[in-house]
Design a protein around this nucleic acid. Sequence first.
DNA 1: GTCTATACAGAGATAGAC
DNA 2: GTCTATCTCTGTATAGAC
Lengths: 223, 223
Amino acid sequence: MARRQARYTAQDLADDPRLQDHSPDLWRADLAAVPRGLLTSAVRCFAANGFHATTTRDIAEGVGLSPAALYVHFPSKELVLFEIIRAGHERVLEYVRDPAVLPAHGDGSADRLRAVIAGYTVWHARHHVAARVCQLELAGLTAEHYDEILEVRHRTNAFFRDTVARGVADGSFAQVDVKRVTRAMLSLSIDLVRWYRLDGSDSPEQLGEFYAALAIRMVAPPG
Amino acid sequence: MARRQARYTAQDLADDPRLQDHSPDLWRADLAAVPRGLLTSAVRCFAANGFHATTTRDIAEGVGLSPAALYVHFPSKELVLFEIIRAGHERVLEYVRDPAVLPAHGDGSADRLRAVIAGYTVWHARHHVAARVCQLELAGLTAEHYDEILEVRHRTNAFFRDTVARGVADGSFAQVDVKRVTRAMLSLSIDLVRWYRLDGSDSPEQLGEFYAALAIRMVAPPG
DNA sequence: GTCTATACAGAGATAGAC
DNA sequence: GTCTATCTCTGTATAGAC
């Protein structure tokens, strides 16, 4: 995902197979087409080149507008970044909390862990371009916006820690260090934003199953 | 590690406990004190704020020099980044290949895997500030420099894949998907650059042992 | 080798017409 | 809401003195 030439045009980025994902799904439904397009363009630019290396001209060109047009829809470049990161953080938490993500069969701690780890992985894979921005461009936020995002991250981490802790408490899992093990599980899903591509050999669902199985191995009781 | 205020002074960064690591050890021995100091300062700046958000003034202030002084020792800001990333990539590969990293007792596939995963993790933890730059600031490189780094990364990945493949071949490990499993193991060590700090609850060695144990669980044969 | 001063380019954001 | 034109600031890199 690193820059491979001096400057990519907006069309280069839109066509790059490494930058295809489902990020257009992320934006609020009440948002008009143009701001949605700007957010989607910004996701690609920020993911490919980073927040600071992206110009407002780059973002606007991605939807065929002049740089000034961006400021009709967003007050600043930083707020474009914040909208992206906020949407991503809220959506992934909604997604893993959604009962539909839980497995139809089975209700034990292991099934539940499998389901939420697979879900977290699937979400990051499907939205890997936006997720890359969410995970790696936090330094572009103002201190206030960063704190707001951190609060959502803490809730997300707590959700997964609770899922692991429940399995340890009911004897389904080994007596693992919950904090460390949970961090390791989430690391796998988060780190895929560095390398994942939708046209690669793993579908989001396959990778989700694979990482869910590794998570189960991390907490497997002896014997 | 995201920016928490509008601008940090060089002193703020040098004192920040989150930015303490062993990166001053990384530079070539034939390098004079001033360029070494500049590289160390640049590591802190790039890690805290990103390559593009860092100015040559920031880097120079970190060693009490004027911005122009940097250009006596490096031809461009990009080359400062390249030196850092190249050093990091070469050093970590040397480190895990070093027989001294291998465990004194035992010579089987499992002991070998444990040793190299622990080593890779320890290196990333000890040098987590520099490693953060190595892993997350690749987009700042020119295309030529990026390709050079990619070559080292491929050799590193091959080294770990071979280690896993050997254990699968000799029956020490389960019949796992070598490429996927190896990628997952490395993800754990790489992802620590986002959150690790030397004054936290895990020493580099403790984290290395922990991730080595998880790696073994990932390839544990049935039964 | 380091400094002060500055050339030059690029980028965020705004003004005002349509 | 979009455009062209531009203001203004910042940042990389250089010139030239010491």
